[in-house]
Simulated assay, not measured.
Amino acid sequence: MISLDDMEDMCSLSRAEIAQVADHDHITTEAAVAEIERLMHEHGGPHRLEEMLCADIRAALHADDVPEARRLFALLRGFLAEHPEAVRGSR
């Protein structure tokens, strides 16, 4: 049987990014890993993950939660560094 640690290790994203997707979509970590892997292999999927992180940053800023916005911005920067195909306008 594959454990959650195995799933996270095989995922294209970091554990923090996986946790953020799970939180954003209100789903389990296991479901987030499956959703991430589907999106990472779908045309436009990485960009949709980038948009999700941007939406979370905006929500944190609108809630005046600057520390959360900073944490999310750091996640976004790391995600884009690892997955440049997610940048808007890239092909």
Rank of each mutant, 00 (worst) to 15 (best):
A19K: 13
A19H: 10
A19R: 12
A19Q: 06
Q20W: 08
Q20P: 06
Q20D: 07
V21W: 01
V21A: 05
D23A: 14
D23T: 12
D23K: 11
D25Y: 13
D25Q: 11
H26D: 04
H26F: 06
I27Y: 02
I27D: 02
I27G: 04
I27A: 05
T28H: 03
T28P: 06
T29Q: 03
T29K: 01
T29W: 00
T29D: 00
T29R: 09
T29I: 07
E30Q: 06
E30Y: 01
E30C: 01
E30A: 04
E30V: 06
E30G: 09
E30P: 00
A31W: 03
A31D: 11
A31R: 09
A32F: 01
A32T: 03
A32Y: 03
A32P: 00
A32I: 01
V33C: 08
I36F: 02
I36A: 03
I36H: 00
E37A: 03
E37R: 01
E37F: 00
R38I: 11
L39T: 03
L39C: 09
L39G: 01
M40W: 00
M40K: 07
H43A: 14
G44E: 07
G44Y: 04
G45C: 07
P46S: 10
P46G: 04
P46E: 09
R48W: 02
R48M: 10
L49P: 04
L49R: 12
E50V: 01
E50I: 00
E50H: 14
E51G: 11
M52W: 00
M52I: 04
M52K: 11
L53S: 08
L53C: 09
C54Q: 15
C54Y: 09
A55H: 12
A55Q: 13
D56R: 15
I57D: 09
I57H: 13
R58M: 12
R58H: 14
R58E: 15
A59N: 10
A59Q: 13
A60C: 10
A60H: 08
L61A: 08
L61E: 15
A63I: 05
A63W: 03
D64R: 07
D64V: 02
D64W: 08
D64H: 11
D64T: 06
D65S: 09
D65G: 08
D65K: 09
D65W: 05
V66Q: 10
P67Y: 05
P67D: 08
P67G: 07
P67E: 09
P67S: 04
A69V: 09
A69K: 04
R70L: 13
R70A: 10
R70E: 15
R71A: 10
L72D: 07
L72I: 08
L72Y: 04
L72R: 10
L72E: 03
F73Q: 14
F73C: 14
F73L: 14
A74L: 13
A74H: 09
L75S: 12
L75T: 08
L76S: 03
L76W: 01
L76M: 05
R77K: 05
R77G: 07
R77C: 11
R77H: 04
R77V: 10
G78D: 10
G78N: 12
